[in-house]
Design a binder for these strands. Structure first.
Length: 623
DNA sequence: AAAAAAC
């Protein structure tokens, strides 16, 4: 039987007192103090247990808490009494704590770091939270009824059902407050499905379009889970940090961005988020870690460093999330990730919750990834106007030697058509770091303020470049693939693939830097004989996104002999991936992703505009 | 073949 929340508070407080007297039986272990109870003077103890009585909790579980949230955030529609709420509250043991903490925090001043916590919602910061700001998207004319038609595939045993509103999920009042502060009115499709799956204790491999709210989808269950697990004990070694959750991403800037988001979601919850990445002074990161960490956001290299110095231990990890998971498991990263997950003391799969997220998930990477997962749910979710619908894609045939003058033409046209007062940002992708520097130099010489971001620049230069671009000071950013994934840069109107990538997945991620937050975007690609291997997948992708495929590109595509193993899912499919575990019965010739939808399994939601495959030779689950 | 990721 569970002890009550009030008991646990009293227990932790008294055990802390014992520990202070040096008479604890296990001197290397201190009782875990829940994040929201830390740094609390002992003299306040009597007040605590009195606050969250059993009756208050019952009251909260029944109607008060739920309807309060529903009323303020959902209008009248979300206020129905949900018979499941009581049960969920029992399961997660959180509802009562949420209310108790809220009142408690009002009474007690100066005991918690929350008093000095910088308000991440202050000032202009608030305007930055637009990616999932549905009120804004509604204003921009998106038809939200179309969400009903979003193709969703879930596979795996007994997937917890999706929810339609945040109020159906018992995330806790403090987190709910932050969700409101972020102006998230309604969960995005990936959030509707992913959050119940993880809160239900299941592992997850999730495939969802760029800009569809993945960060919140893995942060919410982590934060909620950490707040509701009151009885966890963490060892304390003087200089070793024991995070409960680890979020890994492939670039430093993306880790920073996730950290910033996670700070918003955990504001005033007492859940501590720390970021660690290379290229920045390690001492500041070490100090932050020493002050305590619940959620560690990191890039792999720096994390390995910290683990080898024994400044971080993964022994207490309860949640592991890999963002851009397919990149994290590709050839360059996989050994490092395997080391972190399998050889550095992290609890085995099954003893932790593991979440893998990306917009793309090649089959061979899925196979690798399944090593890290336990009886997982595979989830593929498209979204309204999947980013490729919001993005107009153009391909021009441009010889290598003509690329610069062609870019110049684009930029001049843009400058002439530009609306004054409205910042137009252009992101130019090139293949190499040297190429980035040289193109930036040339652009500046020719009167176009540009900057560049790539792995040969110092971290300071990289961050300065990103800031300068975001602010519009240098409205052109020349980038390598370091900027291809995950970065949420508002107001990018135009992505130019000056050099096309060799992998269609990289193309998908690159163009996903525009067309965000319900805005439309333009993506222009320069194609020549050097990109022949991309002809077929690119033509298929464009066809699938209802883009105009130039006749010359279609010819290249049909001539391509490559087909085979590099064959992709875009021909005839919609966005999304397919669970590689389900491919046995289809025959091995199916493209390496498979397709969302089809007539099998639990897939549902058929978009009305499906127009058939581009290339007749490509297998489709619809055929 | 290139890019990213530690000092």
């Amino acid at each position: 039987m569970r002890t009550s929340w009030a008991d646990s508070v009293a227990n932790s407080a008294s055990e802390t007192a014992v520990s202070d007297n040096n008479s604890l039986r296990r001197p290397t272990r201190a009782t875990y103090v829940p994040p929201h109870l830390r740094n609390r003077p002992a003299s306040d103890t009597p007040n605590i247990s009195g606050l969250a009585s059993e009756s208050e909790r019952t009251n909260f579980n029944g109607t008060a808490g739920g309807s309060q949230w529903s009323r303020s955030s959902m209008g009248g529609g979300g206020g129905r009494t949900n018979p499941e709420m009581g049960r969920q509250s029992q399961v997660y043991g959180y509802a009562g704590a949420g209310r108790g903490v809220g009142r408690w925090n009002n009474r007690i001043g100066g005991w918690d770091r929350r008093e000095t916590e910088v308000n991440p919602f202050g000032g202009s910061d608030e305007a930055d939270v637009t990616d999932q700001t549905f009120s804004e998207q509604e204003n921009s004319g998106i038809n939200f009824d179309a969400y009903e038609d979003i193709p969703v595939e879930t596979s795996g045993e007994n997937a917890p059902p999706p929810v339609n509103t945040f109020s159906e999920i018992d995330l806790g009042e403090l987190l709910n407050q932050n969700i409101r502060r972020c102006k998230y009115v309604k969960p995005t499709p990936i959030q509707r499905h992913a959050i119940p799956i993880v809160l239900g204790g299941r592992d997850l491999m999730a495939c969802a379009q760029t800009g569809s709210g993945k960060t919140a989808a893995f942060c919410f269950p982590i934060i909620s889970g950490i707040m509701s697990e009151q009885y966890v004990q963490r060892p304390h070694a003087a200089r070793t940090a024991y995070p409960l959750a680890l979020i890994l991403s492939p670039t430093r800037e993306l880790s920073c961005q996730i950290h910033d988001e996670a700070k918003k979601f955990s504001y005033q919850t007492g859940v501590k988020v720390v970021v660690a990445y290379g290229g920045a002074p390690i001492n500041r990161q070490l100090r932050e870690l020493e002050r305590g960490v619940d959620i560690l956001v990191a890039t792999p290299g720096r994390l390995v460093d910290l683990l080898e110095r024994a400044r971080v231990s993964l022994q207490m990890i309860k949640y592991l999330a890999l963002d851009e998971a397919d990149r994290m498991l590709d050839m360059g990263f996989e050994p490092q990730i395997r080391k972190i997950v399998e050889q550095m003391g992290m609890p085995d799969r099954g003893m932790r919750r593991t979440m893998l997220f990306s917009a793309t998930f090649p089959r061979e990477i899925q196979r690798l990834a399944s090593d890290f997962l336990s009886n997982y749910i595979f989830l593929a979710v498209g979204r309204v106007g999947s980013s490729t619908d919001l993005i107009v894609q153009r391909v021009e045939f441009v010889q290598e030697s003509d690329k610069r003058s062609n870019l110049m033409d684009l930029l001049h046209a843009q400058r002439e058509n530009g609306v004054h007062g409205k910042q137009t940002l252009t992101l130019v992708f090139v293949e190499t770091k040297k190429g980035a520097d040289s193109l930036e130099h040339w652009l500046c010489l020719n009167g176009f303020p540009a900057t560049t971001i790539h792995g040969d620049r110092t971290q300071q230069e990289r961050e300065l470049a990103l800031r300068s671009f975001k602010s519009g000071k240098t409205p052109i950013l020349v980038a390598t693939d370091v900027a291809a994934r995950g970065l949420d840069i508002p107001h990018v109107a135009h992505v130019v693939n000056f050099d096309l990538p060799n992998d269609i997945d990289d193309y998908v991620h690159r163009i996903g830097r525009t067309g965000r937050a319900g805005k439309t975007g333009l993506a222009t690609a320069f194609f020549n004989e050097g990109n022949l291997s991309l002809a077929k997948p690119l033509a298929e992708l464009m066809q699938e996104a209802s883009q105009e495929v130039p006749a010359w590109l279609a010819r290249y595509a049909s001539r391509t002999l490559y087909g085979g193993s590099k064959n992709r899912r875009y021909g005839g499919g919609r966005f999304g991936g397919r669970d590689f575990r389900r491919e046995g019965s289809y025959g091995r010739n199916l493209d390496h992703y498979g397709l969302v939808g089809g007539n099998s399994g639990s897939a549902y939601g058929v978009p009305g505009n499906y127009g058939g495959g581009y290339a007749p030779g490509v297998a489709s689950a619809w055929d």
